[in-house]
């Protein structure tokens, strides 16, 4: 295709947007609303996922051993556990380390009481492994496995926390996915409608183009450009708004509800936009292309 043909199609696509100002504006606005909501949910989901990941990192299963289990045996069990697919890392705490840690917390300020235990470790049978998982939802599998190991006396797990996090993450994902899908379908419909009006307005011109010998692509290209530009504008505007609002909203939440500081960790805007920007723009352009392409195929049979 010649360069001046490409320029011609681009110019015509831009002109089309201005020819149907009201319809174009309606399409861009709806698109912007969709992408804004998409960006909003995307940011929320990313942050929730981030918080879940952070919280999951803290969730672990702790195992204790039967009295008299040798250090060698404990070490073998540790190696076996570390090989499991669910396991991210295993931390060993010996009985002495457990006692030292306990003393620091329990006898803080009254260290002289601890001296009474000199030479005797009340937690002698409390060496343990803290097992961190790749995913909190894998805890059940891991516990089932641990229960089959004969020398393990006790397993401390956190069922409720693990399942709740996993379930909450899935729920948020499904709900936002469904809302976004509905909004995107509306956007496709509106862009298709705008392009359809453009085709009706230019029917005479299109019929002349066809009789003169314009290819299908030449006839369709300006409408595709129109759809893509509407999609691009409809995505760029809300993304810019979200970029501006994100920092302010996060700052406001942390400022007004300082209690949340300890439990909520927000992602920086750059990290959110690292994926949101390309996803949002591709989505806008994709919807614009889909809407206009389907409509031109339907209305512009030569």
């Amino acid at each position: 295709m010649r360069f001046n043909t490409i320029i011609y199609c681009l110019k015509q696509g831009i002109k089309n947007i201005f020819r149907n100002k009201l319809f174009s504006l309606a399409s861009i606005s709806t698109m912007a609303a969709c992408i804004f909501l998409f960006g909003l949910f995307y940011s929320i989901v990313m942050n929730i996922q981030y918080m879940i990941d952070e919280a999951q990192d803290a969730i672990c299963v702790t195992v204790f051993f039967e009295p008299g289990t040798s250090e060698t045996r404990i070490s073998v069990i540790g190696e076996q556990i570390a090989l499991r697919p669910e396991v991210a890392s295993v931390e060993y705490t010996s009985a002495d380390e457990a006692w030292e840690s306990f003393k620091e917390v329990y006898f803080e300020g009254n260290e002289e009481y601890a001296r009474a235990f000199m030479g005797d470790n009340p937690l002698a049978n409390h060496s343990s492994y803290a097992i961190y998982m790749k995913d909190a939802s894998l805890q059940e599998n891991l516990v089932e496995y641990l229960e089959t190991i004969p020398d393990i006396r006790k397993i401390n797990k956190s069922d409720l926390t693990a399942n709740s996090f996993a379930d909450f993450g899935i729920l948020v994902g499904y709900v936002s996915g469904a809302i976004i899908l509905i909004l995107l379908a509306v956007a496709v419909f509106l862009i298709s409608n705008t392009v359809s009006v453009g085709i009706t307005v230019r029917r005479e011109e299109i019929s002349i183009m066809k009789l003169i010998g314009a290819t299908d692509f030449f006839v369709k290209a300006p409408f595709l450009v129109e759809g893509i530009l509407i999609g691009l504008l409809g995505a760029a505007i809300p993304l810019a708004v979200i970029y501006y609002l994100y920092g302010n909203v996060v700052g406001y939440i942390l400022d007004k509800f300082s209690i949340l500081n300890s439990i909520m960790v927000f992602l920086p805007v750059e990290q959110v936009f690292h994926s949101l920007l390309p996803v949002g723009l591709v989505l806008g352009v994709g919807i614009g292309f889909l809407g206009s392409s389907a409509t031109t195929r339907k209305h512009l049979r030569v």
Binding site: R2, N4, T5, E204, S207, I208, M209, I212, F218
Partner: peptide
Amino acid sequence: RLLKDRNVYENIAFAQRVIGTPA
């Protein structure tokens, strides 16, 4: 069947643009 929003020159040039004639 002329394009009402384009002048005489553009109406004729249109036939050439459509088939990708160089400017």
